[in-house]
Amino acid sequence: MQYAHLGRSGLKVSRLALGTMNFGDATDEAAAFAIMEAAVDAGINLFDTADVYGGPQSPGMKQGYGLSEEIIGRWLSRGGGRRDKIVLATKLYQPMGLGPNDKYLSAYKIRRAAEASLRRLRTDHIDLYQMHHVDRSTPWEEIWQAMEQLVREGKITYVGSSNFAGWQIATAQSEARARNFLGLVSEQSLYNLTARTIELEVVPALRHHGIGLIPWSPLGGGLLGGVLKKSENGRRVSAQTRQTVERHRPRLEAYETLCADIGAEPADVALAWLLHNPVLTSVLTGPRTPEQLTAGLRAFDVHLPDDALKRLDEIWPGPGGEAPEAYAW
Results as ranks from 00 to 15, higher is better:
Ala176Gln: 07
Met96Asn: 04
Gly19Asn: 10
Ala272Val: 05
Pro324Glu: 09
Leu224Met: 06
Gln243Trp: 01
Glu256Leu: 10
Thr90Tyr: 06
Ile126Gln: 06
His208Met: 11
Leu224Tyr: 08
Ala295His: 07
His248Gln: 14
Tyr158Arg: 08
Val203Arg: 11
Leu309Tyr: 03
Glu115Cys: 01
Ile198Met: 03
Thr194Met: 12
His276Tyr: 08
Ser117Thr: 09
Ala264Gly: 11
Asp25Ile: 01
Val185Arg: 05
Lys91Ala: 11
His208Glu: 15
Thr289Trp: 03
Asn22Phe: 03
Leu190Pro: 02
Val151Phe: 04
Ala107Val: 13
Lys310Met: 01
Thr138Gly: 07
Asn163Trp: 02
Lys229Gln: 14
Ile214Asn: 10
Asn101Ala: 13
Ser68Ala: 14
Leu206Pro: 03
Ala31Asp: 13
Val52Ser: 02
Pro324Gly: 06
Leu200Phe: 01
Gln188Trp: 13
Pro290Ser: 04
Arg242Leu: 12
Thr197Ser: 10
Arg122Asp: 11
Glu265Thr: 11
Leu182Ser: 14
Asp84Gly: 11
Pro250Lys: 12
Gly24Asn: 07
Glu153His: 02
Thr197Glu: 09
Leu280Met: 10
Leu224Ala: 12
Leu67His: 10
Ala328Thr: 09
Pro56Phe: 02
Gly286Pro: 07
Phe181Met: 13
Ile156Phe: 02
Phe181Tyr: 13
Arg207Trp: 06
Arg83Cys: 05
Ala89Lys: 05
Phe23Ser: 08
Tyr191Leu: 09
Glu37Ala: 13
Gly263Ser: 13
Leu206Asp: 04
Glu175Val: 12
Val227Phe: 01
Thr123Gly: 05
Thr285Ala: 06
Arg8Leu: 09
Arg311Asn: 01
Gly79Asn: 05
